[in-house]
Design a protein around this nucleic acid. Structure first.
Length: 411
RNA sequence: GGGGAGGUACCUAAGUGGACAAAAGGAGCGGACUGUAAAUCCGUCGGCUUAGCCUUCGAAGGUUCGAAUCCUUCCCUCCCCA
C-alpha cells in the first residue's frame, strides 16, 4: 500500500465519532508526509490543572489521542498551569484561586496516573505551558493580540451570549484564546484536539501559526459527552460524571443510569465496538428484538471491561443484578470502616454512621435521608433519625437508591 | 468622567419594617412506579443530637422593641452617554 492510500485509511479511521475536522484533507497531507519522512505528528490537547479527576467525558478526546499514538504519532499532554492560574473564560464567575507550584505538580501527577489508563505513556510527552508563557513580554503580547480583532472575539458564542444577557466578560478572558493559540505555536502542533466548545480557541491556534509562518494545525472537535443526567456536559461539578477511578460496580451502575437515547453515542465515543455492530444493536432495539436494558448492559459491561478487564466486568454485571433485581448487597459494595471505639455498647448513632459513607453533606441531610425512608440497614428500613443502631462486622447498609455499603469493624 | 438600573439560597427570581430560614420555578435529594433510565405523582431542599436553638439576603457600621426591607460608607455588575 502506498503512502497515499495508507494516509487516507488512517484519516478515515480517525474520523470515527468526530464532530468536525478542519480539515480532513490537511490531515491526510500531514499523515502522508509522516509516512514519507517518518517524522511523527505532534498531536496536542490542553488540560486544566485544577481538576485532576478524569471521567468518561475526558476520555472521548483522550481515546482519540490514543488512536494517533497507535498510528505512530506523538501526543503532547499539555497542562495549562499558566492559563489555569488566571481563570477560565468558559467559566462562571468564581475567580480562580491561584494554584501553588506544588499543587500543580501534584495535580499533574494525579492526572498522569489516570490518563495512562488510556494513553500510551511511552508516546506521551507532558508539557506545562508556563514554561513558555511565563517569559512572554508585554511587547510580545501586544504583537500577538494585534492579530485578532474584538469583533472576532465577541462573535464567539459564549462571549456573545454573556454580553447579550448582561453577564460580565473580563478583559483577561480575551487572553485565553491567545495564549492557547500560542501554545500551538510553541509546540509546533500538527493537530489539536478538543470538544466542540473549543472550536474558537483551536481555530485561533491555526491563525496564529500561520502568522508565525507555520503550517496550521488540524483541528479535531469531538462531541461533548452528556453526563448521566443526559442533559449537561459531563463534569465533576455537576455530579453527573463517571470517573475512570471509580470501582467497577459504580462504573457499571452509573452507566446503567444513563438515559437510553445516549447508548449509541456512548458506544461510539467510549468503546471500540465497530460502528456497524453498534447500528445493528440499535436496529434490533428499535425493532424490539433487543431490550434497551440489555443493550445498555452491554455498554456498561464493555466500559468496565476496558478499565478493569473481563473478570471484573462480569462481576460488576452480576453485582448489578444482585443489587437491583434481587435487592441484595452487591459484592462490590464500598466498605465503610468503623473503629470499635466509635461504638458505645456496640451501637452507633445512625446519623453518624451515614456521615461515614460520605453521602450526606451534613447531619441535617442525613436526618432527612432517614426520615424519608432512604436508609436500610441489614434489610431493615430505618426511619428514626435519633436511633442508635447496633451494628456488626459485615452488615450491609443501603443509602438512597444507589449507595451500597458494607460495614467493616476494626479495632 | 456623567446619567440610570441592580447585587436575595446551587441557578432563575419574588419579597421594600414584624406572620421571613425567606414565595414561585428549575436543578438536586428521598419515596412510589419502572427496566436502571425517561415520564408521572408525593415529599424534601441553611446548620445544629432539631417540639427548640444558631447563622443567612454583596460588605461593614447605624436607626429601631424588631431590618432582606430604612440611613451611612464601601465593594461589585450591567446599560446609555463621553
Amino acid at each position: 500500500m502506498n503512502h497515499h492510500t495508507q494516509a487516507a485509511k488512517d484519516v478515515e479511521a480517525l474520523l470515527r465519532g468526530v464532530e468536525e475536522m478542519i480539515s480532513p484533507q490537511d490531515l491526510e497531507k500531514k499523515i502522508s508526509s509522516f509516512y514519507r519522512e517518518g517524522k511523527p505528528l505532534v498531536v496536542k490537547e490542553g488540560f486544566d490543572p485544577s481538576a485532576p479527576d478524569i471521567h468518561l467525558g475526558h476520555t472521548v478526546t483522550l481515546r482519540k489521542l490514543r488512536q494517533f499514538q497507535d498510528l505512530g504519532h506523538e501526543v503532547v499532554f499539555l497542562i495549562g498551569d499558566f492559563t489555569g492560574r488566571i481563570g477560565d473564560p468558559t467559566g462562571k464567575k468564581e475567580s480562580r484561586r491561584q494554584l501553588s507550584e506544588e499543587e500543580v505538580l501534584c495535580n499533574a501527577r494525579t492526572y498522569a496516573e489516570q490518563v495512562n489508563r488510556i494513553l500510551d505513556p511511552e508516546k506521551t510527552r507532558v508539557e506545562f505551558n508556563s514554561s513558555w508563557l511565563k517569559d512572554i513580554t508585554l511587547a510580545d503580547l501586544v504583537v500577538m493580540m494585534s492579530h485578532f480583532t474584538v469583533a472576532r472575539m465577541i462573535e464567539r458564542e459564549d462571549f456573545g451570549e454573556r454580553i447579550k444577557t448582561g453577564k460580565p466578560v473580563g478583559l483577561h478572558e480575551f487572553l485565553y484564546p491567545v495564549m492557547q493559540a500560542y501554545d500551538s505555536v510553541s509546540l509546533r502542533a500538527d493537530v489539536e484536539l478538543g470538544g466542540t466548545d473549543q472550536r474558537f480557541n483551536l481555530l485561533m491556534g491555526r491563525d496564529m501559526q500561520r502568522d508565525f509562518g507555520q503550517e496550521p494545525q488540524v483541528v479535531i472537535l469531538m462531541p461533548l459527552l452528556e453526563g448521566t443526567d443526559g442533559v449537561e456536559k459531563m463534569s465533576k461539578s455537576l455530579g453527573n460524571y463517571i470517573g475512570v477511578n471509580e470501582p467497577p460496580f459504580e462504573v457499571f451502575h452509573k452507566t446503567m443510569t444513563v438515559p437510553d437515547f445516549l447508548i449509541e453515542k456512548y458506544f461510539l465515543l467510549l468503546t471500540d465496538v465497530p460502528e456497524n455492530e453498534i447500528y445493528k444493536m440499535k436496529n434490533e432495539t428499535e425493532k424490539g428484538i433487543l431490550h434497551p436494558r440489555e443493550w445498555k448492559k452491554r455498554l456498561a459491561y464493555t466500559i468496565v471491561k476496558m478499565f478493569y478487564g473481563e473478570d471484573k466486568a462480569r462481576q460488576a454485571d452480576r453485582d448489578f443484578e444482585k443489587a437491583f433485581v434481587q435487592s441484595e448487597t452487591p459484592d462490590g459494595a464500598r466498605e465503610v470502616v468503623i473503629n470499635m471505639n466509635q461504638l458505645e455498647d456496640g451501637k452507633i448513632w445512625i446519623v453518624k454512621l451515614l456521615k461515614m459513607t460520605g453521602i450526606p453533606s451534613s447531619n441535617s441531610e442525613a436526618r432527612r435521608l432517614v426520615q424519608q425512608g432512604g436508609v436500610t440497614l441489614c434489610n431493615q428500613r430505618i426511619s428514626d433519625p435519633e436511633l442508635e443502631v447496633e451494628i456488626q462486622n459485615g452488615d450491609s447498609l443501603k443509602v438512597g437508591k444507589r449507595g451500597f455499603y458494607r460495614l467493616l469493624l476494626v479495632e
